[in-house]
Design a protein around this nucleic acid. Structure first.
Lengths: 239, 239
DNA sequence: CGTGGATTTGATACGGGTCAATGAGGGTGG
DNA sequence: CCACCCTCATTGACCCGTATCAAATCCACG
């Protein structure tokens, strides 16, 4: 479920194997998957490419096959708030599709992305035909709600340190790999991105990460890579 | 859609008329509504009653027939964060029901509440039988996501004044009534509740509302009632 | 009219934002 | 292979806004 089984988005993979790895289609039969495969289009996107623009009416649901994207909004004074970081298997645009609403946020590729698109009519047909897809969509939206409910609680109440820890743990869950000294984490976001995700200033993120490093909780390898030395301390919200 | 047509939750109303007024069932036929009516139970709840406890596994979806409730969580140090204020037609508990997950937040009645409950098996059967219900659930969850996406952006980025204005406008939309001098708003929350919703200290809410009153934007009638004198100033985020 | 809880007001401290300067990488061209 | 530059990150100084603590006042209700 974590990894598409094949290396490249080959025709074969797209139509036969990988679709099952998309949580949204996880419960369908091979035959149903094959039908969906016919409707899915694959597109390669470059880093920084805007996949969906806030306010736009798109006519497809986007499903991330490979890579990661951010969903963000801008305030009137031009500051960015990152709402989600989506990666393999996540989808976006289901709302404006079902209900013809303009998109509520931008979606921007953080790295080269393989994007599968499912057009409106096909999506609606699937949704009506297979109730399991609807339930999977509800489940995914439930996760998203949970994520945001946490974010609201964290931003509103918890200390900055705890919020940074929470974001690191979230990213560690998605992008971390085991290492002999701890958990190696290749961040999809720069410091500025982290700051926009957490809702604080860049400088503050630097300061706090510095403190965490001084406490031996993390070790910064470079701007995009860190080693989480002491996961339990991070979870405990120490510092 | 805003108001149930009859005054009390009479048998007749419950089974025939009012169900259509619940957005979730808005698109169903009379016959389908009648079937749902058989599954719905009605319960009267008192102010302060806990309808759902964080961490609990409930076996029903709750739909608010009359009154309002808050959905909240508590931080480790005991401070409350209100995530939603639900009222007529809103529902809760669909997640833990579909996926057997423990509830993510508490739901507490803010006033006497008429609660309709729909038990697990019935809900699942409905969901599988009528795809429209699934779509309505997706739509409702979409609104909730939008609400939280806004909240995250507001809490993280916008000024305190703007956040207070946003909350007042939201509540005005739900609970406001036209009046000759402006919009009369009976708040479901105390100052403390507002503070927990916005994510700031009580005192700060008082101070800012005081400033708004000095600017003639609002007029406080008593702790739970205010008159919004100048809606456009509030929307503009003046002060 | 008194009592207790909620709200408002005031004084102070501190966290994090902002501005500015410095430092570290990574890519490019000589 | 090194020097340079440009971007990104870090560090420091200072200031503002909000939390916090404390006190006064208001309000609902008996």
């Amino acid at each position: 479920m974590d990894q598409f089984p094949c290396e490249r988005g080959c025709e074969q993979c797209l139509k036969r194997l990988c679709i099952r790895c998309i949580p949204m289609f996880g419960s369908l039969t091979r035959e149903q998957l094959e039908r969906i495969g016919l409707s899915l289009l694959c597109r390669d996107c470059t880093r920084g490419e805007v996949l969906l623009q806030e306010g736009a009416l798109s006519d497809y649901v986007g499903i991330i096959g490979r890579g990661s994207v951010k969903a963000n909004k801008y305030t009137a004074d031009g500051r960015e708030q990152i709402l989600y970081v989506f990666s393999q298997g996540d989808f976006f645009g289901e709302q404006n599709l079902l209900f013809q609403k303009p998109a509520f946020y931008n979606v921007v590729a953080l790295e080269p992305v393989e994007l599968y698109t499912l057009h409106r009519d096909d999506f609606q047909a699937l949704l009506r035909q297979y109730t399991d897809i609807g339930i999977a969509v509800i489940q995914e939206m439930g996760w998203r709600l949970e994520h945001l409910e946490n974010a609201v609680q964290n931003i509103g109440m918890r200390s900055l340190e705890a919020r940074i820890s929470a974001v690191l743990l979230e990213l560690a869950g998605k992008y971390g790999t085991e290492d002999k000294d701890g958990l190696l984490l290749h961040l999809p976001l720069s410091r500025e991105g982290l700051a926009s995700y957490i809702g604080v200033a860049r400088e503050t993120v630097s300061r706090k990460l510095g403190i965490m490093e001084a406490h031996g909780i993390i070790h910064s390898i470079n701007n995009r890579t860190m080693l989480i030395r002491n996961l339990s301390l991070l979870e405990a919200g120490a510092i």
